[in-house]
Design a binder for these strands. Structure first.
Length: 306
DNA sequence: AAATCGCTCAACCGCATCCCT
DNA sequence: CAGGGATGCGGTTGAGCGATT
């Protein structure tokens, strides 16, 4: 499948990979690990550019890749994450273990984009709140080919993300202030333990000492001085993505597991989530919960916005 | 049976960002 | 700090294949 073999002007192979090429690449990675893609050709004699090697590994050869069709839960989660993140396929894939960004992108383009477009045109659908954005030229009659593209606005430079675009139906702006963080130090610690690239400075949290009083009058967060509402300003969206980008399972470990974090809950989900006993690492439940966004965005936010 | 259509998915391309010197 | 190479990402392409005509 894919493109037939061609040779570029510098003598490198292109197109579909042969089994022998796969073996060369696998052997190289077994011995040297991932990365240093530009060295693969030099050290193995493989006539492939580094980019091509990386792509082959990431999308096909990696042992943890999950084969088979996308489950309903996965599909649901993809839809919700896409709503949140836009076409940030790698971020979405990061939340779906074993799935690649390419696979999700293909699945979206060949399945979900159409579903979303149909949902948009039929107001009764439960997915009718998903906006499929179109570029001006796509506003014209359907292109000759059957492909349906959903397009997010041009990616803004550095500090903002596509999901933060005001053109998105529900952006992070829409539910800013709605994530309550209990004990930010531990969140930062947990995040850092997952991805050491994220410095504590990167997770910029508003130090507005806000306690989250629930509708029934209970103080959700207790009286700790380290309770904060996470205040997502427009410039903070990237930070939110960094949090999304870490492994929720590890966060959960930090929450209920080891002694190191005992007694210091890390991430307090919105009350509606807590009421439904959603575990952050339970993607199925999380997807179902997100599906009910009318609820989890909740009264507090509606009051805030009104 | 042959031709055409439509879909899937691996792979390519260009651009952005990161990282090293 | 600047420049250049490496890497990562998202959009797009096109061969292969099953379904339909």
């Amino acid at each position: 499948m894919g493109r037939g073999p061609r040779c570029s002007k510098d003598g490198l192979n292109k197109g579909a990979w042969m089994a022998a090429e796969d073996k060369l690449l696998l052997d190289y990675i077994k011995n040297h690990g991932e990365g240093k893609w530009s060295n693969v050709a030099k050290e193995t004699g493989l006539k492939r550019c580094g980019k091509s090697c990386r792509l082959r590994w990431m999308n096909y050869l990696r042992p943890d890749i999950k084969r088979g069709s996308i489950s309903d839960d996965e599909e649901e989660l993809i839809i919700r994450l896409h709503k949140l993140l836009g076409n940030r396929w790698s971020l979405i894939a990061g939340r779906l273990p074993g799935r690649t960004d390419n696979e999700i992108k293909n699945y979206w383009n060949s399945n979900l984009a159409k579903k979303m477009a149909q949902a948009q045109s039929s107001p009764q659908s439960k997915c009718n709140n998903v906006i499929v954005q179109q570029t001006p030229d796509q506003a014209q009659p359907q292109q000759q080919c059957s492909r349906v593209s959903t397009v997010v606005p041009p990616r803004p430079p550095t500090s903002t993300i596509a999901a933060a675009s005001p053109l998105h139906h529900r952006t992070l702006d829409d539910f800013c202030n709605n994530v309550a963080i209990n004990n930010t130090n531990n969140l930062v610690k947990a995040v850092n333990s997952v991805d050491s690239r994220i410095s504590s400075e990167d997770v910029s949290l508003s130090t507005t000492a806000t306690t989250n009083t629930t509708s029934d009058g209970d103080d959700q967060l207790g009286s700790s001085p380290t309770n904060f509402m996470m205040d997502f300003n427009s410039d903070d969206h990237e930070d939110f993505c960094k949090i999304l980008d870490c492994d929720f399972a590890n966060l959960n470990n930090a929450i209920d597991g080891d002694d190191e974090h005992q007694g210091s809950p890390v991430l307090v989900l919105p009350k509606q989530m807590m009421d439904k006993n959603i575990q952050a690492a339970d993607f199925g439940s999380l997807a179902s919960f997100l599906e009910s966004d009318e609820d989890w965005l909740g009264n507090d936010l509606n009051v805030m916005l009104s």
